[in-house]
Design a protein around this nucleic acid. Structure first.
Lengths: 195, 195
DNA sequence: CGAATTTCCTAAACCAGTTCATTTTTATTT
DNA sequence: AAATAAAAATGAACTGGTTTAGGAAATTCG
Protein backbone atom coordinates (compact mmCIF):
# COMPACT_ATOMS: atom_id res chain seq x y z
CA UNK A 1 0.00 0.00 0.00
CA UNK A 2 2.75 2.44 0.89
CA UNK A 3 4.24 2.13 -2.58
CA UNK A 4 0.89 2.95 -4.09
CA UNK A 5 0.44 6.20 -2.19
CA UNK A 6 1.61 8.46 -5.03
CA UNK A 7 -1.47 7.58 -7.08
CA UNK A 8 -3.83 7.74 -4.10
CA UNK A 9 -2.45 11.21 -3.38
CA UNK A 10 -2.74 12.22 -7.00
CA UNK A 11 -6.42 11.28 -7.11
CA UNK A 12 -6.99 13.01 -3.77
CA UNK A 13 -5.93 16.31 -5.29
CA UNK A 14 -9.17 16.26 -7.28
CA UNK A 15 -11.71 14.34 -5.17
CA UNK A 16 -12.06 13.63 -1.44
CA UNK A 17 -11.79 9.94 -0.73
CA UNK A 18 -12.60 8.16 2.55
CA UNK A 19 -9.98 5.79 3.95
CA UNK A 20 -12.07 2.86 2.80
CA UNK A 21 -12.27 4.21 -0.70
CA UNK A 22 -8.52 4.73 -0.74
CA UNK A 23 -7.96 1.14 0.33
CA UNK A 24 -10.40 -0.06 -2.26
CA UNK A 25 -8.72 1.95 -4.98
CA UNK A 26 -5.34 0.61 -3.92
CA UNK A 27 -6.42 -2.96 -4.64
CA UNK A 28 -6.67 -2.02 -8.33
CA UNK A 29 -3.16 -0.60 -8.60
CA UNK A 30 0.03 -2.41 -9.31
CA UNK A 31 3.69 -1.51 -9.43
CA UNK A 32 5.72 -2.25 -12.56
CA UNK A 33 9.43 -1.78 -13.15
CA UNK A 34 10.79 -1.29 -16.65
CA UNK A 35 14.28 -0.94 -18.04
CA UNK A 36 15.47 1.76 -20.38
CA UNK A 37 14.43 1.17 -24.01
CA UNK A 38 11.64 -1.18 -22.97
CA UNK A 39 8.20 -0.68 -24.53
CA UNK A 40 5.05 -0.59 -22.42
CA UNK A 41 2.80 -0.03 -25.46
CA UNK A 42 3.35 -1.21 -29.02
CA UNK A 43 1.43 -0.73 -32.28
CA UNK A 44 -0.90 -3.59 -33.04
CA UNK A 45 -1.49 -4.53 -29.41
CA UNK A 46 -4.42 -3.19 -27.44
CA UNK A 47 -3.22 -0.84 -24.71
CA UNK A 48 -4.27 -2.43 -21.43
CA UNK A 49 -3.08 0.08 -18.86
CA UNK A 50 -2.99 3.66 -17.84
CA UNK A 51 0.42 4.26 -16.27
CA UNK A 52 1.52 6.73 -13.61
CA UNK A 53 5.26 7.46 -13.51
CA UNK A 54 6.75 7.07 -10.04
CA UNK A 55 10.30 7.29 -11.26
CA UNK A 56 11.83 7.62 -14.71
CA UNK A 57 10.89 9.04 -18.09
CA UNK A 58 8.78 7.91 -21.05
CA UNK A 59 7.96 8.92 -24.54
CA UNK A 60 4.91 8.09 -26.66
CA UNK A 61 5.50 8.23 -30.39
CA UNK A 62 4.22 7.17 -33.76
CA UNK A 63 6.23 5.88 -36.70
CA UNK A 64 4.76 7.04 -40.01
CA UNK A 65 4.82 5.35 -43.43
CA UNK A 66 8.16 6.91 -44.30
CA UNK A 67 9.62 5.56 -41.07
CA UNK A 68 9.77 8.95 -39.40
CA UNK A 69 9.03 9.24 -35.69
CA UNK A 70 6.60 11.75 -34.22
CA UNK A 71 6.50 12.20 -30.47
CA UNK A 72 3.06 12.79 -29.01
CA UNK A 73 3.86 12.92 -25.35
CA UNK A 74 6.49 12.73 -22.67
CA UNK A 75 6.01 11.68 -19.08
CA UNK A 76 8.30 12.03 -16.10
CA UNK A 77 7.60 11.71 -12.36
CA UNK A 78 3.97 12.45 -11.41
CA UNK A 79 2.70 12.30 -15.00
CA UNK A 80 0.47 9.73 -16.70
CA UNK A 81 1.07 8.06 -20.03
CA UNK A 82 -0.62 5.58 -22.41
CA UNK A 83 -2.01 5.37 -25.94
CA UNK A 84 -5.18 7.17 -25.07
CA UNK A 85 -7.16 6.23 -28.18
CA UNK A 86 -6.23 2.59 -27.89
CA UNK A 87 -7.09 2.57 -24.21
CA UNK A 88 -10.53 4.14 -24.33
CA UNK A 89 -11.73 2.34 -27.43
CA UNK A 90 -9.80 -0.85 -26.57
CA UNK A 91 -8.52 -1.09 -30.12
CA UNK A 92 -4.97 -1.81 -31.34
CA UNK A 93 -2.48 0.91 -30.45
CA UNK A 94 -0.80 3.08 -33.06
CA UNK A 95 1.85 4.38 -30.70
CA UNK A 96 5.00 3.10 -29.10
CA UNK A 97 5.43 4.06 -25.48
CA UNK A 98 9.06 3.57 -24.53
CA UNK A 99 11.04 4.02 -21.33
CA UNK A 100 13.81 6.59 -21.77
CA UNK A 101 15.35 5.62 -18.41
CA UNK A 102 15.03 2.73 -15.99
CA UNK A 103 11.63 3.48 -14.52
CA UNK A 104 8.95 2.58 -12.00
CA UNK A 105 5.26 2.78 -12.81
CA UNK A 106 1.96 2.37 -11.03
CA UNK A 107 -0.51 0.87 -13.48
CA UNK A 108 -4.28 0.60 -13.65
CA UNK A 109 -5.76 -2.03 -15.90
CA UNK A 110 -8.56 -0.99 -18.25
CA UNK A 111 -11.12 -3.51 -16.98
CA UNK A 112 -10.30 -2.67 -13.37
CA UNK A 113 -10.79 0.99 -14.04
CA UNK A 114 -14.23 0.36 -15.54
CA UNK A 115 -15.02 -1.64 -12.44
CA UNK A 116 -13.97 0.91 -9.87
CA UNK A 117 -15.65 3.71 -11.79
CA UNK A 118 -18.85 1.77 -11.13
CA UNK A 119 -17.98 1.03 -7.51
CA UNK A 120 -16.63 4.47 -6.57
CA UNK A 121 -18.63 6.98 -8.66
CA UNK A 122 -16.61 9.84 -7.21
CA UNK A 123 -13.79 8.72 -9.44
CA UNK A 124 -15.83 9.63 -12.49
CA UNK A 125 -15.32 13.21 -11.45
CA UNK A 126 -11.60 12.67 -11.14
CA UNK A 127 -11.46 11.16 -14.62
CA UNK A 128 -13.56 13.93 -16.06
CA UNK A 129 -11.38 16.66 -14.64
CA UNK A 130 -8.04 15.25 -15.69
CA UNK A 131 -9.36 14.44 -19.14
CA UNK A 132 -10.66 17.98 -19.49
CA UNK A 133 -7.26 19.31 -18.54
CA UNK A 134 -5.48 17.08 -21.00
CA UNK A 135 -7.83 18.31 -23.67
CA UNK A 136 -7.16 21.95 -22.81
CA UNK A 137 -3.44 21.19 -22.90
CA UNK A 138 -3.68 19.49 -26.27
CA UNK A 139 -5.62 22.40 -27.66
CA UNK A 140 -2.89 24.79 -26.62
CA UNK A 141 -0.31 22.59 -28.24
CA UNK A 142 -2.20 22.45 -31.51
CA UNK A 143 -2.52 26.22 -31.50
CA UNK A 144 1.13 26.63 -30.67
CA UNK A 145 2.00 24.47 -33.67
CA UNK A 146 -0.16 26.63 -35.89
CA UNK A 147 0.85 30.04 -34.65
CA UNK A 148 4.50 29.77 -33.67
CA UNK A 149 7.71 29.19 -35.56
CA UNK A 150 9.93 26.22 -34.78
CA UNK A 151 12.26 28.40 -32.74
CA UNK A 152 9.44 29.94 -30.71
CA UNK A 153 8.05 26.50 -29.91
CA UNK A 154 11.50 25.39 -28.84
CA UNK A 155 11.92 28.40 -26.53
CA UNK A 156 8.47 27.87 -25.09
CA UNK A 157 9.16 24.23 -24.35
CA UNK A 158 12.53 24.94 -22.74
CA UNK A 159 11.07 27.53 -20.42
CA UNK A 160 7.98 25.51 -19.47
CA UNK A 161 9.50 22.05 -19.27
CA UNK A 162 13.18 22.60 -18.57
CA UNK A 163 13.33 19.39 -16.57
CA UNK A 164 11.96 17.28 -19.42
CA UNK A 165 14.14 19.00 -22.00
CA UNK A 166 17.18 18.09 -19.93
CA UNK A 167 16.28 14.44 -19.65
CA UNK A 168 15.06 13.42 -23.09
CA UNK A 169 17.25 12.90 -26.17
CA UNK A 170 17.21 15.73 -28.66
CA UNK A 171 15.77 13.74 -31.52
CA UNK A 172 12.79 13.04 -29.27
CA UNK A 173 12.38 16.71 -28.44
CA UNK A 174 12.63 17.73 -32.11
CA UNK A 175 10.02 15.17 -33.10
CA UNK A 176 7.75 16.43 -30.30
CA UNK A 177 8.04 20.02 -31.48
CA UNK A 178 7.42 18.96 -35.06
CA UNK A 179 10.68 19.55 -36.87
CA UNK A 180 13.87 17.70 -37.80
CA UNK A 181 16.86 17.11 -35.50
CA UNK A 182 19.03 18.94 -37.98
CA UNK A 183 16.90 21.98 -37.60
CA UNK A 184 17.07 21.74 -33.83
CA UNK A 185 20.86 21.84 -34.13
CA UNK A 186 20.57 24.91 -36.29
CA UNK A 187 18.39 26.63 -33.70
CA UNK A 188 20.73 25.78 -30.84
CA UNK A 189 23.66 26.97 -32.89
CA UNK A 190 22.00 30.28 -33.61
CA UNK A 191 21.46 30.78 -29.89
CA UNK A 192 24.96 29.96 -28.68
CA UNK A 193 26.57 32.12 -31.35
CA UNK A 194 24.34 35.02 -30.33
CA UNK A 195 25.27 34.98 -26.65
CA UNK B 1 -39.28 20.80 -23.35
CA UNK B 2 -39.87 19.47 -26.84
CA UNK B 3 -37.33 21.87 -28.30
CA UNK B 4 -34.77 20.65 -25.80
CA UNK B 5 -35.09 17.00 -26.75
CA UNK B 6 -32.03 16.94 -29.03
CA UNK B 7 -29.73 17.44 -26.04
CA UNK B 8 -31.65 15.04 -23.80
CA UNK B 9 -31.34 12.44 -26.55
CA UNK B 10 -27.68 13.20 -27.03
CA UNK B 11 -26.93 12.62 -23.35
CA UNK B 12 -29.07 9.48 -23.38
CA UNK B 13 -26.75 7.94 -25.94
CA UNK B 14 -24.15 7.69 -23.21
CA UNK B 15 -26.04 7.30 -19.91
CA UNK B 16 -29.50 6.00 -18.97
CA UNK B 17 -31.61 8.74 -17.47
CA UNK B 18 -34.97 8.36 -15.71
CA UNK B 19 -37.81 10.59 -16.84
CA UNK B 20 -37.36 12.69 -13.72
CA UNK B 21 -33.69 13.15 -14.43
CA UNK B 22 -34.48 14.15 -18.00
CA UNK B 23 -36.96 16.75 -16.78
CA UNK B 24 -34.47 18.00 -14.27
CA UNK B 25 -31.75 18.27 -16.87
CA UNK B 26 -34.11 20.12 -19.19
CA UNK B 27 -34.56 22.91 -16.65
CA UNK B 28 -30.89 23.78 -17.14
CA UNK B 29 -31.05 24.08 -20.92
CA UNK B 30 -32.00 27.06 -23.00
CA UNK B 31 -32.52 27.77 -26.65
CA UNK B 32 -30.61 30.58 -28.35
CA UNK B 33 -30.89 31.85 -31.90
CA UNK B 34 -27.97 33.61 -33.57
CA UNK B 35 -27.54 35.29 -36.93
CA UNK B 36 -24.74 34.64 -39.41
CA UNK B 37 -21.50 36.43 -38.49
CA UNK B 38 -22.58 36.77 -34.85
CA UNK B 39 -20.09 35.79 -32.14
CA UNK B 40 -21.08 33.55 -29.25
CA UNK B 41 -17.59 33.68 -27.71
CA UNK B 42 -15.05 36.49 -27.92
CA UNK B 43 -11.47 36.89 -26.66
CA UNK B 44 -11.26 38.67 -23.34
CA UNK B 45 -14.66 37.51 -22.13
CA UNK B 46 -15.10 34.42 -19.99
CA UNK B 47 -16.92 31.70 -21.92
CA UNK B 48 -20.14 31.06 -20.03
CA UNK B 49 -21.76 28.31 -22.06
CA UNK B 50 -21.32 25.01 -23.70
CA UNK B 51 -23.39 25.07 -26.88
CA UNK B 52 -25.09 22.27 -28.80
CA UNK B 53 -25.91 23.05 -32.44
CA UNK B 54 -29.53 22.30 -33.33
CA UNK B 55 -29.33 24.05 -36.68
CA UNK B 56 -26.55 25.94 -38.43
CA UNK B 57 -22.77 26.01 -38.48
CA UNK B 58 -20.03 27.50 -36.31
CA UNK B 59 -16.33 28.02 -36.29
CA UNK B 60 -13.96 28.52 -33.37
CA UNK B 61 -10.77 30.35 -34.21
CA UNK B 62 -7.86 32.30 -32.82
CA UNK B 63 -6.31 35.45 -34.23
CA UNK B 64 -2.55 35.49 -33.68
CA UNK B 65 -0.20 38.45 -33.20
CA UNK B 66 0.28 38.87 -36.92
CA UNK B 67 -3.48 39.01 -37.39
CA UNK B 68 -3.68 35.57 -38.94
CA UNK B 69 -6.65 33.33 -38.16
CA UNK B 70 -6.33 29.73 -37.07
CA UNK B 71 -9.44 27.59 -36.92
CA UNK B 72 -9.59 25.14 -34.04
CA UNK B 73 -12.98 23.63 -34.55
CA UNK B 74 -16.11 23.52 -36.59
CA UNK B 75 -19.56 22.52 -35.45
CA UNK B 76 -22.68 21.72 -37.42
CA UNK B 77 -25.91 19.97 -36.37
CA UNK B 78 -25.51 17.58 -33.43
CA UNK B 79 -22.04 18.89 -32.48
CA UNK B 80 -20.94 20.90 -29.45
CA UNK B 81 -18.81 24.01 -29.46
CA UNK B 82 -17.19 26.47 -27.02
CA UNK B 83 -13.79 27.77 -25.94
CA UNK B 84 -12.98 24.73 -23.88
CA UNK B 85 -10.06 26.18 -21.94
CA UNK B 86 -11.97 29.31 -21.07
CA UNK B 87 -14.99 27.28 -20.03
CA UNK B 88 -13.35 24.79 -17.71
CA UNK B 89 -10.97 27.23 -16.05
CA UNK B 90 -13.49 30.10 -16.23
CA UNK B 91 -10.81 32.44 -17.50
CA UNK B 92 -10.99 34.91 -20.42
CA UNK B 93 -11.39 33.27 -23.80
CA UNK B 94 -8.71 33.37 -26.47
CA UNK B 95 -11.01 32.21 -29.24
CA UNK B 96 -13.74 33.68 -31.33
CA UNK B 97 -16.69 31.39 -31.90
CA UNK B 98 -18.69 32.70 -34.82
CA UNK B 99 -21.88 31.61 -36.56
CA UNK B 100 -21.26 30.79 -40.23
CA UNK B 101 -24.99 30.60 -40.90
CA UNK B 102 -28.16 31.68 -39.12
CA UNK B 103 -28.27 29.12 -36.34
CA UNK B 104 -30.12 27.65 -33.38
CA UNK B 105 -28.32 26.48 -30.24
CA UNK B 106 -29.15 24.74 -27.00
CA UNK B 107 -26.90 26.15 -24.30
CA UNK B 108 -25.83 25.02 -20.85
CA UNK B 109 -24.46 27.64 -18.51
CA UNK B 110 -21.23 26.83 -16.66
CA UNK B 111 -22.63 27.30 -13.15
CA UNK B 112 -25.71 25.26 -13.99
CA UNK B 113 -23.57 22.46 -15.28
CA UNK B 114 -21.56 22.38 -12.06
CA UNK B 115 -24.84 22.24 -10.20
CA UNK B 116 -26.40 19.38 -12.12
CA UNK B 117 -23.18 17.41 -12.06
CA UNK B 118 -23.63 17.44 -8.27
CA UNK B 119 -27.34 16.69 -8.43
CA UNK B 120 -27.21 13.99 -11.13
CA UNK B 121 -23.86 12.21 -10.67
CA UNK B 122 -24.60 10.01 -13.67
CA UNK B 123 -23.84 12.98 -15.83
CA UNK B 124 -20.22 12.90 -14.68
CA UNK B 125 -19.91 9.75 -16.71
CA UNK B 126 -21.41 11.45 -19.72
CA UNK B 127 -18.96 14.32 -19.40
CA UNK B 128 -16.06 11.96 -18.94
CA UNK B 129 -16.86 9.95 -22.02
CA UNK B 130 -17.39 12.83 -24.40
CA UNK B 131 -14.28 14.59 -23.12
CA UNK B 132 -12.26 11.41 -23.63
CA UNK B 133 -13.51 11.20 -27.17
CA UNK B 134 -12.67 14.79 -27.90
CA UNK B 135 -9.20 14.14 -26.58
CA UNK B 136 -8.75 11.08 -28.80
CA UNK B 137 -9.98 13.15 -31.74
CA UNK B 138 -7.57 15.98 -31.00
CA UNK B 139 -4.71 13.57 -30.72
CA UNK B 140 -5.46 12.20 -34.16
CA UNK B 141 -5.57 15.68 -35.55
CA UNK B 142 -2.22 16.59 -34.05
CA UNK B 143 -0.69 13.44 -35.51
CA UNK B 144 -2.26 14.12 -38.86
CA UNK B 145 -0.66 17.57 -38.85
CA UNK B 146 2.71 16.05 -38.10
CA UNK B 147 2.65 13.15 -40.49
CA UNK B 148 0.71 14.31 -43.51
CA UNK B 149 1.26 16.86 -46.23
CA UNK B 150 -1.16 19.71 -46.77
CA UNK B 151 -2.78 17.92 -49.69
CA UNK B 152 -3.19 14.67 -47.76
CA UNK B 153 -4.84 16.51 -44.89
CA UNK B 154 -7.16 18.21 -47.34
CA UNK B 155 -8.15 14.90 -48.94
CA UNK B 156 -8.69 13.31 -45.54
CA UNK B 157 -10.93 16.13 -44.39
CA UNK B 158 -12.99 16.10 -47.58
CA UNK B 159 -13.64 12.39 -47.33
CA UNK B 160 -14.41 12.38 -43.57
CA UNK B 161 -16.32 15.63 -43.31
CA UNK B 162 -17.75 16.25 -46.77
CA UNK B 163 -20.79 17.92 -45.28
CA UNK B 164 -18.72 20.42 -43.30
CA UNK B 165 -16.37 21.08 -46.22
CA UNK B 166 -19.37 21.98 -48.34
CA UNK B 167 -20.79 24.44 -45.82
CA UNK B 168 -17.79 26.40 -44.54
CA UNK B 169 -15.86 29.08 -46.43
CA UNK B 170 -12.56 27.99 -47.89
CA UNK B 171 -10.41 30.35 -45.89
CA UNK B 172 -11.87 28.74 -42.79
CA UNK B 173 -11.08 25.27 -44.05
CA UNK B 174 -7.51 26.26 -45.00
CA UNK B 175 -6.91 27.76 -41.57
CA UNK B 176 -8.28 24.59 -39.96
CA UNK B 177 -5.95 22.40 -41.97
CA UNK B 178 -3.03 24.67 -41.18
CA UNK B 179 -2.09 26.32 -44.46
CA UNK B 180 -2.86 29.43 -46.48
CA UNK B 181 -5.95 30.00 -48.63
CA UNK B 182 -3.69 30.55 -51.60
CA UNK B 183 -2.26 27.10 -51.15
CA UNK B 184 -5.71 25.60 -50.89
CA UNK B 185 -6.52 27.14 -54.25
CA UNK B 186 -3.38 25.60 -55.64
CA UNK B 187 -4.35 22.16 -54.34
CA UNK B 188 -7.85 22.42 -55.77
CA UNK B 189 -6.46 23.55 -59.07
CA UNK B 190 -4.08 20.60 -59.21
CA UNK B 191 -7.03 18.28 -58.68
CA UNK B 192 -9.39 19.72 -61.27
CA UNK B 193 -6.70 19.85 -63.94
CA UNK B 194 -5.85 16.20 -63.25
CA UNK B 195 -9.36 14.86 -63.77
C1' DC C 1 38.86 -0.76 -20.27
C1' DG C 2 37.83 -0.66 -25.49
C1' DA C 3 34.52 -1.59 -29.25
C1' DA C 4 30.06 -0.82 -30.84
C1' DT C 5 26.15 1.68 -30.99
C1' DT C 6 23.52 5.62 -30.29
C1' DT C 7 23.23 10.45 -30.29
C1' DC C 8 24.56 14.98 -31.89
C1' DC C 9 26.40 18.43 -35.13
C1' DT C 10 27.47 20.76 -39.72
C1' DA C 11 26.71 22.37 -44.39
C1' DA C 12 24.84 22.70 -48.98
C1' DA C 13 21.14 21.71 -52.11
C1' DC C 14 16.43 21.56 -52.23
C1' DC C 15 11.19 21.88 -51.81
C1' DA C 16 6.56 22.49 -49.65
C1' DG C 17 4.14 26.01 -48.47
C1' DT C 18 4.05 31.45 -47.80
C1' DT C 19 3.74 36.22 -49.17
C1' DC C 20 2.53 39.87 -51.93
C1' DA C 21 0.04 42.07 -55.38
C1' DT C 22 -3.62 41.90 -58.50
C1' DT C 23 -7.90 40.02 -60.70
C1' DT C 24 -12.20 37.41 -60.98
C1' DT C 25 -16.09 35.47 -58.92
C1' DT C 26 -19.66 35.16 -55.62
C1' DA C 27 -22.59 36.85 -51.98
C1' DT C 28 -24.94 40.58 -49.53
C1' DT C 29 -27.19 44.88 -49.10
C1' DT C 30 -29.89 48.87 -50.68
C1' DA D 1 -30.47 45.59 -60.49
C1' DA D 2 -26.71 48.16 -59.18
C1' DA D 3 -23.34 48.87 -55.66
C1' DT D 4 -20.53 47.08 -52.33
C1' DA D 5 -18.37 43.92 -49.79
C1' DA D 6 -16.58 39.28 -49.08
C1' DA D 7 -14.46 35.21 -50.91
C1' DA D 8 -11.70 32.66 -54.25
C1' DA D 9 -8.13 32.35 -57.79
C1' DT D 10 -3.57 33.26 -60.00
C1' DG D 11 1.25 33.75 -60.53
C1' DA D 12 5.96 35.17 -59.33
C1' DA D 13 9.30 35.80 -55.82
C1' DC D 14 10.67 34.08 -51.57
C1' DT D 15 11.72 31.49 -47.01
C1' DG D 16 11.42 28.25 -43.09
C1' DG D 17 12.43 24.00 -42.57
C1' DT D 18 13.89 19.28 -44.89
C1' DT D 19 17.01 16.12 -46.97
C1' DT D 20 21.14 13.99 -47.76
C1' DA D 21 25.55 12.82 -46.50
C1' DG D 22 29.13 13.08 -43.64
C1' DG D 23 31.94 13.28 -39.27
C1' DA D 24 32.44 14.00 -34.09
C1' DA D 25 30.94 13.07 -29.36
C1' DA D 26 28.95 10.58 -25.98
C1' DT D 27 26.82 6.30 -23.95
C1' DT D 28 26.38 1.60 -23.38
C1' DC D 29 27.86 -2.81 -22.46
C1' DG D 30 30.72 -7.03 -22.78
Amino acid sequence: MKDLLPVIDYVSRYVDLTDDEKKHLATFLKITKVKKRQFIVQPGFVCKHKSYVVKGAFRGYLVDNEGKEHTLSFAIEDWWISDYSSLIYQEPATLFVEALEDSVLIQIEYEDEQKFLREIPKLEKFERIITQRSLAFQQKRLLSNFTKTAEERYDEFISKYAEIAKRVPQYALASYLGFSTEYLSKIRNRKTSKS
